[in-house]
Amino acid sequence: MSKVAVVTGANQGIGFGVVRRLCKEHPTWTVYGTSRSAANGEEARKKLEAEGLTAKYLEADLTKADTIVAMKEKLLKEHGGIDILVNNAGIAFKGAATDPYAVQAEVTLQTNVFGTHTVCEQLFPILRDGARVVILSSFMAMRALHKTKEISPSRYEVYIKNDPPMTIDAALNLMREFVSSVKAGDHAQKGWPDNSAYGTSKLANTVMARAYQQQFSSTPERDIVVNAADPGYVNTSMTSHSGNLSIDEGADTPYYLAVLPPNTPIKGQHVSKRCVVEWK
Protein backbone atom coordinates (compact mmCIF):
# COMPACT_ATOMS: atom_id res chain seq x y z
CA MET A 1 0.00 0.00 0.00
CA SER A 2 1.33 3.43 -0.97
CA LYS A 3 1.63 5.82 1.95
CA VAL A 4 2.08 9.55 2.46
CA ALA A 5 4.89 10.65 4.78
CA VAL A 6 5.77 14.12 6.08
CA VAL A 7 9.12 15.01 7.67
CA THR A 8 9.58 18.50 9.07
CA GLY A 9 12.88 20.37 8.97
CA ALA A 10 14.08 18.10 6.21
CA ASN A 11 16.21 20.21 3.89
CA GLN A 12 19.36 19.17 5.77
CA GLY A 13 20.64 17.08 8.65
CA ILE A 14 18.66 14.28 10.26
CA GLY A 15 15.41 15.27 8.57
CA PHE A 16 17.06 15.04 5.16
CA GLY A 17 18.42 11.64 6.15
CA VAL A 18 14.94 10.41 7.13
CA VAL A 19 13.46 11.59 3.83
CA ARG A 20 16.26 9.87 1.93
CA ARG A 21 15.74 6.60 3.84
CA LEU A 22 11.99 6.65 3.26
CA CYS A 23 12.49 7.30 -0.45
CA LYS A 24 15.07 4.52 -0.78
CA GLU A 25 13.15 1.90 1.15
CA HIS A 26 9.67 2.79 -0.15
CA PRO A 27 9.92 4.20 -3.69
CA THR A 28 6.15 3.98 -4.25
CA TRP A 29 5.34 6.17 -1.24
CA THR A 30 4.80 9.91 -1.50
CA VAL A 31 7.37 11.54 0.76
CA TYR A 32 7.26 15.20 1.72
CA GLY A 33 10.00 17.12 3.45
CA THR A 34 9.46 20.61 4.80
CA SER A 35 11.77 23.59 5.06
CA ARG A 36 11.44 27.17 6.26
CA SER A 37 12.07 28.49 2.75
CA ALA A 38 10.99 27.24 -0.66
CA ALA A 39 14.54 27.75 -1.98
CA ASN A 40 16.07 25.44 0.64
CA GLY A 41 13.41 22.84 -0.06
CA GLU A 42 14.07 22.95 -3.78
CA GLU A 43 17.79 22.55 -3.23
CA ALA A 44 17.16 19.48 -1.06
CA ARG A 45 14.78 18.03 -3.64
CA LYS A 46 17.42 18.38 -6.34
CA LYS A 47 20.04 16.65 -4.19
CA LEU A 48 17.72 13.68 -3.78
CA GLU A 49 16.85 13.71 -7.45
CA ALA A 50 20.58 13.49 -8.26
CA GLU A 51 20.60 10.26 -6.23
CA GLY A 52 17.70 8.90 -8.24
CA LEU A 53 15.19 9.56 -5.45
CA THR A 54 11.89 11.41 -5.62
CA ALA A 55 10.61 13.59 -2.80
CA LYS A 56 8.45 16.68 -2.60
CA TYR A 57 9.05 19.72 -0.42
CA LEU A 58 6.64 22.07 1.30
CA GLU A 59 7.36 25.39 2.97
CA ALA A 60 6.66 25.26 6.70
CA ASP A 61 8.00 27.43 9.51
CA LEU A 62 7.15 26.14 12.98
CA THR A 63 7.04 29.70 14.31
CA LYS A 64 4.44 30.72 11.72
CA ALA A 65 1.16 28.89 12.21
CA ASP A 66 -0.24 30.02 8.86
CA THR A 67 2.43 28.01 7.01
CA ILE A 68 1.45 24.89 8.96
CA VAL A 69 -2.23 25.45 8.17
CA ALA A 70 -1.39 25.88 4.47
CA MET A 71 0.61 22.63 4.56
CA LYS A 72 -2.32 20.78 6.09
CA GLU A 73 -4.74 22.13 3.50
CA LYS A 74 -2.47 21.06 0.65
CA LEU A 75 -1.97 17.57 2.06
CA LEU A 76 -5.68 17.16 2.69
CA LYS A 77 -6.60 18.35 -0.79
CA GLU A 78 -4.07 16.20 -2.62
CA HIS A 79 -4.09 13.05 -0.49
CA GLY A 80 -7.02 13.16 1.91
CA GLY A 81 -4.72 12.29 4.82
CA ILE A 82 -1.23 11.17 5.83
CA ASP A 83 0.28 7.97 7.24
CA ILE A 84 3.60 9.11 8.71
CA LEU A 85 4.59 12.31 10.50
CA VAL A 86 8.17 12.83 11.65
CA ASN A 87 8.46 16.00 13.75
CA ASN A 88 12.15 16.65 13.20
CA ALA A 89 12.37 20.45 12.94
CA GLY A 90 14.14 22.04 15.87
CA ILE A 91 16.81 24.52 16.92
CA ALA A 92 19.62 24.77 19.45
CA PHE A 93 21.77 27.71 20.49
CA LYS A 94 25.50 27.17 20.23
CA GLY A 95 27.50 26.86 23.42
CA ALA A 96 29.25 30.13 22.62
CA ALA A 97 25.96 32.02 22.11
CA THR A 98 25.86 35.33 23.99
CA ASP A 99 22.09 35.71 23.94
CA PRO A 100 20.57 36.06 27.42
CA TYR A 101 19.26 32.79 28.81
CA ALA A 102 15.73 34.22 28.79
CA VAL A 103 15.98 34.73 25.03
CA GLN A 104 17.46 31.28 24.47
CA ALA A 105 14.70 29.65 26.52
CA GLU A 106 11.86 31.46 24.79
CA VAL A 107 13.17 30.99 21.25
CA THR A 108 14.13 27.34 21.79
CA LEU A 109 10.81 26.38 23.34
CA GLN A 110 8.86 28.34 20.72
CA THR A 111 10.17 26.07 17.97
CA ASN A 112 10.99 22.77 19.65
CA VAL A 113 7.91 22.54 21.87
CA PHE A 114 5.15 24.93 20.86
CA GLY A 115 5.97 24.77 17.14
CA THR A 116 5.98 20.98 17.26
CA HIS A 117 2.62 21.10 19.02
CA THR A 118 1.23 23.34 16.27
CA VAL A 119 2.26 20.78 13.65
CA CYS A 120 0.61 17.98 15.63
CA GLU A 121 -2.50 20.04 16.32
CA GLN A 122 -2.94 20.69 12.61
CA LEU A 123 -1.95 17.32 11.16
CA PHE A 124 -3.35 14.89 13.75
CA PRO A 125 -6.90 15.33 12.40
CA ILE A 126 -5.75 14.04 9.01
CA LEU A 127 -3.82 11.01 10.28
CA ARG A 128 -5.10 7.81 8.72
CA ASP A 129 -5.67 4.64 10.72
CA GLY A 130 -2.36 2.91 11.36
CA ALA A 131 -0.44 6.20 11.26
CA ARG A 132 2.96 6.51 12.90
CA VAL A 133 4.12 9.76 14.53
CA VAL A 134 7.71 10.42 15.59
CA ILE A 135 8.90 13.37 17.67
CA LEU A 136 12.64 13.99 17.62
CA SER A 137 13.99 14.09 21.13
CA SER A 138 17.61 13.70 22.23
CA PHE A 139 19.94 12.06 24.74
CA MET A 140 19.82 15.53 26.31
CA ALA A 141 16.25 14.76 27.38
CA MET A 142 17.45 12.07 29.76
CA ARG A 143 20.23 14.33 31.02
CA ALA A 144 17.61 16.98 31.78
CA LEU A 145 15.52 14.33 33.56
CA HIS A 146 18.47 13.29 35.73
CA LYS A 147 19.25 16.94 36.52
CA THR A 148 15.63 17.45 37.52
CA LYS A 149 15.95 14.51 39.91
CA GLU A 150 18.81 16.32 41.65
CA ILE A 151 17.20 19.73 41.99
CA SER A 152 13.45 19.07 41.99
CA PRO A 153 12.55 15.54 43.18
CA SER A 154 8.85 16.40 43.20
CA ARG A 155 8.84 17.35 39.53
CA TYR A 156 10.96 14.32 38.73
CA GLU A 157 8.32 12.11 40.38
CA VAL A 158 5.63 13.72 38.23
CA TYR A 159 7.61 12.83 35.09
CA ILE A 160 8.43 9.29 36.23
CA LYS A 161 5.16 8.15 37.78
CA ASN A 162 2.90 9.90 35.27
CA ASP A 163 0.05 9.27 37.71
CA PRO A 164 -2.34 10.74 36.94
CA PRO A 165 -1.22 10.77 33.28
CA MET A 166 0.16 14.15 32.22
CA THR A 167 -2.01 15.63 29.48
CA ILE A 168 -0.56 17.56 26.57
CA ASP A 169 -2.07 20.76 28.00
CA ALA A 170 -0.36 20.12 31.33
CA ALA A 171 2.96 19.47 29.58
CA LEU A 172 2.70 22.68 27.57
CA ASN A 173 1.73 24.68 30.66
CA LEU A 174 4.76 23.27 32.45
CA MET A 175 6.97 24.56 29.64
CA ARG A 176 5.27 27.96 29.76
CA GLU A 177 6.07 28.01 33.47
CA PHE A 178 9.71 27.23 32.65
CA VAL A 179 9.97 30.13 30.18
CA SER A 180 8.23 32.52 32.57
CA SER A 181 10.53 31.51 35.41
CA VAL A 182 13.62 32.05 33.26
CA LYS A 183 12.36 35.49 32.26
CA ALA A 184 11.71 36.32 35.91
CA GLY A 185 15.16 35.07 36.86
CA ASP A 186 13.91 32.67 39.52
CA HIS A 187 13.96 29.40 37.56
CA ALA A 188 16.79 27.98 39.68
CA GLN A 189 14.87 28.63 42.89
CA LYS A 190 11.83 26.95 41.36
CA GLY A 191 13.79 23.81 40.54
CA TRP A 192 14.46 24.30 36.83
CA PRO A 193 17.87 23.35 35.38
CA ASP A 194 20.08 26.32 34.59
CA ASN A 195 21.37 27.00 31.09
CA SER A 196 19.81 23.93 29.50
CA ALA A 197 16.89 25.22 27.47
CA TYR A 198 17.58 22.69 24.72
CA GLY A 199 17.63 19.77 27.15
CA THR A 200 14.43 20.99 28.78
CA SER A 201 12.78 21.30 25.36
CA LYS A 202 13.81 17.77 24.43
CA LEU A 203 12.56 16.37 27.72
CA ALA A 204 9.31 18.14 26.89
CA ASN A 205 9.28 16.45 23.46
CA THR A 206 9.55 13.04 25.11
CA VAL A 207 6.79 13.92 27.59
CA MET A 208 4.66 15.19 24.70
CA ALA A 209 5.04 11.92 22.81
CA ARG A 210 3.77 10.04 25.83
CA ALA A 211 0.88 12.47 26.30
CA TYR A 212 -0.12 12.33 22.63
CA GLN A 213 -0.10 8.54 22.76
CA GLN A 214 -2.43 8.68 25.73
CA GLN A 215 -4.85 10.72 23.62
CA PHE A 216 -5.02 7.93 21.07
CA SER A 217 -5.49 5.25 23.74
CA SER A 218 -9.25 5.88 23.65
CA THR A 219 -9.36 4.62 20.04
CA PRO A 220 -7.00 1.61 20.02
CA GLU A 221 -8.70 0.20 16.93
CA ARG A 222 -7.16 3.05 14.92
CA ASP A 223 -3.64 1.81 15.80
CA ILE A 224 -2.09 5.30 15.76
CA VAL A 225 1.31 5.28 17.48
CA VAL A 226 3.43 8.16 18.79
CA ASN A 227 7.02 7.83 20.02
CA ALA A 228 10.02 10.04 20.76
CA ALA A 229 13.30 9.30 18.98
CA ASP A 230 16.82 9.93 20.25
CA PRO A 231 18.92 10.00 17.06
CA GLY A 232 22.24 10.07 18.89
CA TYR A 233 25.02 12.64 18.55
CA VAL A 234 24.91 13.42 14.83
CA ASN A 235 27.30 15.34 12.61
CA THR A 236 25.05 18.27 11.64
CA SER A 237 25.17 22.05 11.65
CA MET A 238 23.29 21.95 14.97
CA THR A 239 26.22 20.15 16.61
CA SER A 240 28.75 22.29 14.71
CA HIS A 241 29.63 19.06 12.89
CA SER A 242 31.14 17.56 16.03
CA GLY A 243 28.78 14.58 16.22
CA ASN A 244 30.14 11.07 15.78
CA LEU A 245 27.23 9.78 13.67
CA SER A 246 26.42 10.48 10.02
CA ILE A 247 23.00 11.88 9.20
CA ASP A 248 22.01 8.49 7.79
CA GLU A 249 22.98 6.82 11.07
CA GLY A 250 21.07 9.50 12.97
CA ALA A 251 18.03 8.90 10.77
CA ASP A 252 17.89 5.19 11.64
CA THR A 253 15.87 5.33 14.87
CA PRO A 254 13.37 7.93 13.57
CA TYR A 255 12.92 5.82 10.43
CA TYR A 256 12.48 2.65 12.51
CA LEU A 257 9.72 4.30 14.54
CA ALA A 258 8.08 5.73 11.42
CA VAL A 259 7.55 2.27 9.94
CA LEU A 260 6.66 0.25 13.05
CA PRO A 261 4.38 -2.68 12.12
CA PRO A 262 0.69 -2.96 13.03
CA ASN A 263 -0.13 -3.48 16.70
CA THR A 264 3.38 -2.67 17.86
CA PRO A 265 3.89 -2.63 21.63
CA ILE A 266 6.25 0.36 21.33
CA LYS A 267 3.96 3.27 22.13
CA GLY A 268 4.58 6.58 23.86
CA GLN A 269 8.22 5.68 24.47
CA HIS A 270 11.63 7.35 24.33
CA VAL A 271 13.66 5.22 21.90
CA SER A 272 17.41 5.21 21.27
CA LYS A 273 19.28 2.87 18.90
CA ARG A 274 15.94 1.16 18.24
CA CYS A 275 15.62 0.31 21.95
CA VAL A 276 13.16 1.68 24.49
CA VAL A 277 14.89 3.78 27.14
CA GLU A 278 13.57 3.23 30.66
CA TRP A 279 12.60 6.36 32.56
CA LYS A 280 14.67 6.42 35.74
Rank of each mutant, 00 (worst) to 15 (best):
P265H: 08
A211Q: 11
D252T: 07
I160V: 12
A251D: 01
M166C: 15
E249F: 08
W192V: 01
P165K: 10
M166W: 10
S272P: 03
P231Q: 15
G232M: 07
V226H: 03
Q189R: 00
D194C: 02
A197K: 02
N244K: 04
W192K: 03
D194Y: 03
A228C: 08
M175Y: 06
L257A: 02
K161R: 14
P254N: 10
I168V: 14
R210G: 08
T200N: 06
Q215G: 13
Y255N: 12
D163W: 07
A171M: 10
T253C: 08
N244E: 05
N227V: 02
E157D: 08
N244W: 05
Y256S: 10
Q189L: 01
D186S: 01
S152Y: 06
A251Y: 05
T264K: 02
I266C: 04
A229V: 09
S240C: 03
T167N: 12
Q214P: 00
Y156L: 08
N162W: 12
A170G: 05
M238G: 09
M238C: 13
N195M: 00
V271N: 06
A197W: 03
S240D: 02
G199Y: 03
N162H: 08
S152I: 01
K161H: 12
S272I: 06
N162A: 14
V234Y: 01
S196D: 08
V226F: 06
M166Y: 14
I266H: 05
S196P: 04
S217A: 15
Y255Q: 15
H187P: 07
G243P: 00
A197I: 02
N195V: 00
P265C: 04
V158S: 10
Q213E: 14
K161Q: 10
P220D: 14
S154N: 04
L203H: 11
I224H: 06
H241M: 04
M175T: 05
N235G: 12
A204C: 14
Y156D: 05
T236N: 12
D163T: 03
A204W: 09
V271F: 08
I266M: 02
P164C: 09
N244F: 01
T167K: 14
N244P: 05
Y212N: 12
P262I: 00
D163E: 12
Y198A: 14
D248V: 05
S218D: 12
Y212T: 09
N205C: 12
E249Y: 03
N244I: 06
P220F: 05
G199N: 07
A228Q: 06
G232C: 13
A229C: 10
V225C: 09
P153Y: 01
S242Q: 00
S201A: 15
T239I: 09
S240M: 04
P254L: 12
V259H: 04
D223R: 07
Y159R: 15
S246D: 01
